[in-house]
Amino acid sequence: MARSAQLKIDISSDVPAYRQIADQVRALVVEGALEPGDSLPPVRKLALDLGIHFNTIAEAYRTLAREGLLDITHGHGARVAGISSKSPDPEEAENFRQRLRELVAMVRSRGLSTRRIIGELRGVVDGLEQS
């Protein structure tokens, strides 16, 4: 059966479009919907389909390439590189901790209990590992 990988962005969201794209592509790679070696659409084509500026897509691809999830080669476009098995460097780990702290603070401020947050996180991790 043909695999399907849809990208969906909300232009009225507070989250910048490039981060929405990077987050979704990352999730698709982790879930296995995108496999190592899969070619992603060229920057111009994806920008055309989403009706946003080329630079936004290019920034999302660069972010994923910095994380090691994408291989960008001149003339061949972007390919999925797979999930890196090495541990993240201290700066990246700190960045991750910071984002997680902000996210937890945001959902706590909206009234979610600590137990519920832990349960949701476990559910997300289990879901990604099973797929």
Binding site: A2, R3, S4, A5, Q6, L7, K8, I9, D10, I11, S12, S13, V25, L28, L34, D38, L40, P41, L46, D49, L50, G51, I52
Partner: peptide
């Protein structure tokens, strides 16, 4: 509508 979609793999 504020949501836009695109396909990453050829269909």
């Amino acid at each position: 509508p504020s949501v836009r979609t695109a396909t990453l793999l050829p269909e």
